[in-house]
């Protein structure tokens, strides 16, 4: 009787551990922001469009991190974005550029990093550094406005 109960409780606990393991490794990618193996870079954009916290950071389509914080710099009133990137991708050069991109026509916005050229003259970005070369989000209304304006001036 008591043995059977212990066996079933053991089974229950083992099943829960299996479920937790599945949830942490199969369902959630425990690597990204799941642990402390990340570092932070900052970037200022003149316009971030519809960028949200937790939006992905991609290099050539590969997710390497997420945006963890968005605020407005109180000195020059430009948006300041904190990019939390996995530690194993820590070889970005000073020449790296960041742009706010959109996946597909109506998709989510994300930050694309372009590593740029690497040679001896440029240094590497350290945790906490700013990415200097940034391209703002394209705002559809402005684009359409420009397009119409250029048409009209012809």
């Amino acid at each position: 009787m008591s043995k059977k109960i212990e066996l079933l409780v053991g089974f229950f606990v083992a099943l829960s551990i299996a479920a937790l393991l599945m949830l942490s490794y199969k369902v959630a990618q425990k690597g990204i922001l799941g642990n402390d193996k990340t570092y932070v870079l900052y970037a200022k954009f003149s316009n971030i469009g519809g960028l949200k916290v937790r939006a992905p950071i991609k290099v050539g389509g590969v997710v390497i991190g997420r945006i963890t914080h968005i605020s407005l710099d109180t000195k020059d009133y430009t948006p300041l974005v904190a990019l939390t990137i996995e530690k194993k991708y820590n070889q970005f050069s000073d020449a790296t550029s960041a742009s706010v991109l959109t996946s597909g026509l109506l998709g989510e916005q994300y930050i694309g990093l372009d590593p740029g050229f690497v040679d001896d003259s440029v240094g590497m970005l350290k945790p906490g550094d700013f990415i200097e070369d940034t391209k703002p989000a394209l705002v559809l209304e402005k684009l359409i406005g420009q397009f119409l304006f250029s048409k009209g001036s012809k």
Binding site: V27, Q29, I32, L33
Partner: peptide, 15 residues
């Protein structure tokens, strides 16, 4: 199915 799930689900935030 699994990879899109993994890229969207966050361990600390969701699990």
């Amino acid at each position: 199915f699994w990879s899109v799930m993994q890229s969207e689900v966050n361990f600390r935030g969701d699990v």
